[in-house]
Design a protein around this nucleic acid. Structure first.
Lengths: 168, 168
DNA sequence: GCCGAAAGTTAGGCGCCCCTAACTTTTATG
DNA sequence: CATAAAAGTTAGGGGCGCCTAACTTTCGGC
């Protein structure tokens, strides 16, 4: 019986970690999970039992762990959220990678699929729209530490247009 | 002794609710808090005791609640985060208000001051930079449901520049 | 193949936050 | 001003996630 009940943030984190371990090592082991998540082995055991009950992992006591296909689907979804949020935090908001990593870890549990997809679209829009783009983000990153400098706008708009013509 | 220990998300929520009740009614009452937070009165009592221990609220059994100045500072900070995130979700990502409200409620506990300030700057940048602005957001909102339409770019860039000249 | 170290599990405990049920205090109304 | 209703508290219990300590299983090297 597959429960439709929501996973706790903690269990989502476990799934995510298991996915990453599985992708590098084929399987995940309790010790590695414990290290990655910075929790005790006892906590890992308890969580693995819960994940197995929900049929999200293949696991037996003293054995290694792999994701079931259901588990993989969910884990990939969470990991996708993580990457999207982290990308936004780093590239758009110019937050330092280590802090972005931590913050993404927490936000990933709080945005539903629809919201995440909006974020994806928005970042893609920034990357695509001639009025935005890399140089626009760079301008933000410069002025984000100071005040907005209206003096540069004319020149900036010209550059922007020129750049767009070149691309065509 | 003022603990520096971090507040749980739950206690942060209580502070936020108390702030809002206090601003409309001068004081907050347990019943109102319970209703707003959709928890039982018993849960409210327990949380009020914790907040009082941390000297974040003025409160005695059977009496109403007000924030101490320390509590007000923290509550305002959280509420500020909430408003900023909600504004971003609604105005930039074009997420529906009710869902934005819920999502903001959760993200508000996960972004530190620095990250929030980046977000503020970014939204301000969007509102200020001639290359972005209201019409740019509108374009995003249109294309966010479809594909990016390169055909419009030339016209859009011209409009953008024209608009900027007018403003000067 | 034995045995110690490493890996994993179980038991028991704690903090947090929530609940219901039974109780007490406050209040408002006749 | 008495008393019933409303507001608030306490007691007790549950789920979750974490911990340490004591135990068991697994595995690598002699």
């Amino acid at each position: 019986m597959s429960r439709k009940m929501e996973l706790s943030e903690s269990l989502e984190d476990y799934l995510e970690v298991i996915l990453q371990l599985q992708e590098t090592n084929k399987v995940a082991r309790a010790t590695e999970i414990a290290e990655k998540m910075r929790v005790s082995l006892a906590s890992v055991t308890a969580s693995l039992r819960k994940l197995r009950e929900r049929e999200l992992i293949n696991y037996a006591p003293y054995k290694f762990v792999t994701l079931t296909s259901k588990g993989q689907t969910i884990a990939r979804e969470i990991f996708r959220k993580h990457k999207i949020i982290k990308d936004f935090l780093i590239r758009v908001l110019t937050i330092e990678a280590p802090k972005a990593e931590l913050t993404a870890c927490r936000i990933e549990h709080t945005m539903d699929r629809a919201a995440i997809n909006k974020l994806v679209k928005f970042v893609a829009f920034i990357d695509t729209c001639p009025r935005a783009g890399k140089d626009w983000l760079q301008r933000f990153s410069k002025c984000s530490s100071t005040e907005f400098d209206w003096e540069q706008c004319d020149h900036c708009l010209d550059e922007c247009k020129k750049h767009h013509q070149k691309r065509k």
